[in-house]
């Protein structure tokens, strides 16, 4: 039997800032944040509050191991070792399972702080569309949380749902967003975003002869609408930013913008690292607070 293609597999990324010179690293505050999520794990290393290196990879079944692998990948070829990191903070679902972290902070606080860094201080509303949950956050110009709402009871309309869907459609998850626009007319959304219900509804549509891209479009718009109703509860204020893996899926984001009548800001960094950036920034703030005492 031919090996099954992993359609759900998204791109893992890593980056080092070429502009930071680490000569004389003794005088610098090196901090790290590690976000172990349900689907992906990120590690971020910051030098004096500037982004130095990051990695973004899949979470395995073993949280401590995923955290270590993400951290080691971020530090790879940087000349830094994990012992050079002054303070590390764990965040995300698996935050209690980050072996090298000195403390943990919830992902809500970290995402707001991280989005503030990635998208600038004008961000008022942050939507994090993660692997298994969805969070809507209002924050002030310093990235402090003012209101938040999290839906983690059900993974409908999240990254995990999209992975399952990509697999069902036999389309790479990296292309699924673009393909959803390659249609003659916008189909009505699937009636439920529940992964199980949507999957059977989509299978039914395919069997009836509805083109694949149209079925994808129907799911994307159902997902966008579900997120819209969640956002409606706390309201959306400009500027708006989306973090997390689904931010890379234009099939969902563009449909959401159309419903909101509002576009989100863009970032040159990987949208999935917001939580880890926030954690690393909190780590720096904690080091500075210790020093003052």
């Amino acid at each position: 039997m031919a090996e099954k293609k992993e359609y759900w597999r998204w791109l893992e990324t890593r980056w080092t800032n070429p502009d930071i010179d680490l000569d004389g690293k003794e005088g610098k505050i090196i901090t790290a944040g590690c976000d172990v999520g349900s689907v992906s794990s990120q590690a971020v290393v910051m030098v004096d509050g500037k982004l130095y290196a990051y990695s973004n990879m899949r979470t395995g079944s073993d949280s401590p191991d995923s955290a270590m692998r993400a951290m080691n990948w971020a530090l790879e070829d940087t000349g830094l070792a994990i012992d050079d990191v002054r303070y590390s903070i764990g965040t995300g679902y698996g935050r209690v399972n980050v072996p090298f972290a000195q403390r943990t902070i919830t992902e809500i606080a970290c995402h707001a702080r991280g989005a503030n860094f990635m998208y600038g201080p004008t961000v008022k509303t942050v939507l994090d569309m993660g692997g298994q949950d969805c969070k809507a956050i209002h924050c002030d110009e310093r990235g402090k949380v003012l209101t938040f709402l999290m839906n983690d009871k059900c993974a409908a309309g999240t990254g995990r749902g999209m992975e399952v869907f990509a697999d069902l459609m036999g389309v790479s998850i990296n292309e699924i967003g673009e393909l959803s626009f390659d249609i003659d007319e916008e189909p009505p959304p699937v009636t439920s975003t529940c992964v199980i219900f949507a999957k059977s509804e989509a299978t039914g549509m395919l069997k009836k002869g509805v083109p694949k891209n149209k079925v994808i479009a129907a799911y994307c718009s159902a997902m966008a609408h579900r997120i819209y109703t969640l956002l409606e509860r706390i309201g959306v204020e400009k500027d708006f930013a989306i973090t997390g893996g689904i931010a890379k899926n234009v099939g969902v984001t563009r449909r959401l913008f159309a419903e909101l009548g509002l576009e989100s800001l863009t970032s040159k960094y990987d949208t999935q690292i917001a939580g880890a950036i926030g954690a690393a920034l909190f780590a720096k703030a904690l080091v500075e607070r210790e020093a003052k005492k």
Binding site: K144, F148, N151, K153, I234
Partner: peptide, 11 residues
């Protein structure tokens, strides 16, 4: 901060 705890489901 207004912390919203809970969820939204079909019901």
């Amino acid at each position: 901060m207004r912390a919203n705890y809970g969820y939204k489901d079909g019901s």
